[in-house]
Design a protein around this nucleic acid. Sequence first.
RNA 1: GCGCCCAUAGUUCAAUGGAUAGAAUAGUGGCCUCCGAAGCCAUAGAUACAGGUUCGACUCCUGUUGGGCGCACCA
Length: 575
Amino acid sequence: MREFATFEERLSVWTTDAMKSVFGLEDTDVHLGVTPTNNDKFGDYQCNAAMMLAKPLKKAPRQIAQEFVDAAELPDFVEKIDIAGPGFINFFLSNAALAEHVESLERDPHLGAEQVGQGKTVIVDYSSPNVAKPMHIGHIRSTVIGNAIDRLYRFLGYNVVADNHLGDWGTQFGLMMVGFRNFVNEEALAEAPVEELERIYVESYNKSKEDASWRELAKSELVKLQQGDAENRALWEKFIELSIEEFNTIYDRLGVKFDLYRGESFYNDRLPKMIEALEGRGLAKESDGALIVDLEEDGMPICIVRKSDGGYNYATTDLATVEARMEEFDPDRIIYVTDERQQLHFKQFFKISEKLGMDANLVHVWFGLMRLPEATFSTREGNVIKLAALLDEAEARALEMVKASSPDMPEAQQKDLAMAIGIGAIKYTDLSQNPQSLVTFTWEKALNMEGNSAPYLQYAYARISSVYDKYHAQFPKTELSGCSINIEHEIERRLAIKLSRFPAAIRGAAENYRPNILADYLYELAQTYSSFYQNVPFLKAEEGVRESRIRLCRSTAATLKQGLDLLGIETRERI
RNA sequence: GCGCCCAUAGUUCAAUGGAUAGAAUAGUGGCCUCCGAAGCCAUAGAUACAGGUUCGACUCCUGUUGGGCGCACCA
């Protein structure tokens, strides 16, 4: 058993062994471990094996439970064991063991979370905006959810490669080239480069619809670019450079960092070989001039890997990307974070990758579309909300709140706080719900700062910091780590149990690619703390009790801070 | 037409097949002489519909209704 093993792990190992020995079970599919209870009255953990074993053992569940309880010798951290209802076996942890465990977590930089990723590499492919298009609120989910997954896996010890797979290649660049040379407004370009690039694209696109010679010109410029023409290449690189620069200002504001910015173009050279591989394995065939992979036997529509004009598309690029990533990083897993519309595409190219014999573990983490109450976002409708505008608005609203509640704070600090709170609120809104739900955007929801929200958690953290500082001012000589935690009050116990469950929240969030599991946990932890704070005195408690409670505060602060950091949400000692 | 996803309090969201479906917000009623009221305590309110599987179903299966999305050269 590892040093900071959770009670759930320890108990599960114990119940599994004990069940096997008491009932002479060898191999069984029945889950013999424990799960957390959802009600204090049923103890801290429950084992449901008795019900599940009724059939194979041909005995009544309660009888099984009773025989188990009679025969088994309790581990020392269990205070009491109970049989309830149809045959639930409930475990009550001892307060002393609980207190000791919480104390010990202070020595673990990972707060009890097992380093399951040691020696493993994971590539997380997320955000992936298109060059020459401003990021809008549709990009927030991939960026924020992807970044949380990135952080979670790093925390679990994985070597994470965060890759921003930019949309930097494709037919639109022909139109961009001719458009730029004809309609660029240098002032606008200096002011807001990507917005201007988008404007140029739209104008050029509109012109192409009416003007056949314009279309021809765009096409020939595209071919020149593809053939490596120096001038077009330079212009294309300029588009990318301007775009990345602007994306980075957004990423900086969001606290998002990538290890790589490898656009689709990075894999261009591999595309012909990829087609050869498909043909060599007899996977690809001609159809209406295009080269396709027939996936009918796999229950999917055909997948085009080379267009009838000889160009390659999405699927081919993604296959080549997998191949390149396998060669360079040999990852244990590649995680793609995109919206739900791409499910079929990913299923198709995952299948083709398998058929090609690429031994890649590919995971598509999809999230629900973001839409407006009345319609989906579209450039044509002109209802797109830019990501930068959303962040501005969040910070402005947060600043208003900060000024109202802390009018005497220096302005620079107010602004810094407003940033942490505003950005935190936006992120938390997205991270606190199941990623797969469809989201209807409203300002009110996106910038929620009341109730179950980032500011609630940040407030709880700041309040603890304040208590902690006051303690040190009043009792500067006491060495806290030398004082033990004693659990006597009910609310202390609830808080300690919550603290001990942090690793489960982390694992659940990471393994299911659902940061909301962690967000839920943190909210519950903060609620439990608030109740603790309200119901028992800390600084005015008698010596000993006081130190014990301050240590619980310290653990809570560390857990909140770490958890919020994994969601990419910043904390401040004073708000 | 085929396929994927979704439906939980008035509203916005939770709930690895487990016990009495949790929060927030809006409503009502309390709590600053006391560690920060961005808070706490109390109260009321929900599983679309019809079947099925199971000791046990919001969760799994089938059907219905209502929504979102995808399905040959856009990524």
